[in-house]
Computed example of a mutant assay.
Amino acid sequence: MIEAMSQVTVLAVGGTGESHPDDHRRHVSGLLSEVTGALDERFASRWVGYPASYGPVAAGGLSYRQSTEVGVERLIDAIEDAPGPVMLIGYSQGCTVIREVLGQIATGALRADNVSAVGLVSDPEQPAGAVPGCSGRGVAGVGAPIPDSVPVQWIAHPDDMICNASEDSYVRDIADLTRSMSFRTLRTWLAHTWVLLRHNSFQNAGKTRVSPRQWRTDLRRLRTAVNEVLGYLPPRLAWRGVRVVNARGGRHIAYASEPLDASGLTGCQVLAQWLQVRATFDAPLRVAA
């Protein structure tokens, strides 16, 4: 029997600020459009809209946690609507959405046999050692489990703190405190913050003590945190007419514009190549003609 390649649906979930609560577009937008734009005719790409908010930082005002929950629901609907094999790609907060869906697959709460590959650009829950050159891990801590049946490709820059924060980074404490931040649901945020403080369940809880030796360590941690934040901020900063060049900046948004490694390819191009290789050689993507 002759085999033919079934068209692969690529579902793209963008980062904070790249979507909004009433986003019903189907064409891929934002940074991930540089991935889908490099794919060949075997792929059909679709955007998965969701709030993509981080409290007051983006439109909608939902907390990061609430925004992610909505994204999970919409991504599951999109997976179920896809006519054939599916690949998932995410950027930043979109990676968290995908990781939650993968966690449901891994635990058996969700049946999604058509998901064949996943690409994650700047995953806030990136595991340690997932990317050569990244000595840290995602700033949001350990994410949901990943099913063994689904191959995952992480795309990360060593100076991007979102996916490669140092193990004892102060930025982790900020991430813990702001995950439920929302002025629309202020009482919920305060309640979660109180539980976090009362149980001292910060990622860095075991790395912080009151002692002179700890103070010396904290000076090093503070310098590291400053460098990590500078890497996240834009390359050029302006405030009240004063303009400053931030040579370290822009690492979190450079995946579509700057070479990621010695190959000269951007992170988005590297991911597009990987998806095409998976589509070529993975047997589950072939269907009987």
Rank of each mutant, 00 (worst) to 15 (best):
P151L: 05
Y255T: 00
F281Y: 15
D168I: 09
R198D: 15
L285I: 15
L186W: 15
Q269S: 08
R236K: 14
S6G: 10
L177C: 13
Y170L: 15
G241R: 12
A112T: 07
R42T: 03
L233D: 13
P234C: 10
R46P: 00
Y64V: 05
E228D: 08
E125W: 03
P158N: 06
V118C: 05
F183M: 14
L260K: 04
V101P: 10
R236Y: 11
R74A: 07
G264C: 06
G17L: 06
R172D: 13
V270W: 04
R42D: 06
V86K: 08
V139N: 01
G133A: 03
A82Y: 08
G17P: 05
V277G: 08
G15Q: 01
S67T: 08
A272D: 01
V277K: 08
A58N: 09
A52M: 03
A288V: 14
A112H: 07
L31E: 04
A52S: 09
A144C: 12
R223A: 15
A289G: 13
L32T: 03
P234A: 06
L177P: 03
A140R: 05
G55H: 02
P124C: 03
I155N: 05
A44K: 14
A128N: 08
R187C: 05
R198S: 14
Q269W: 09
P85K: 02
V86C: 08
H27W: 14
V72C: 01
A288G: 13
Y50W: 11
G30K: 03
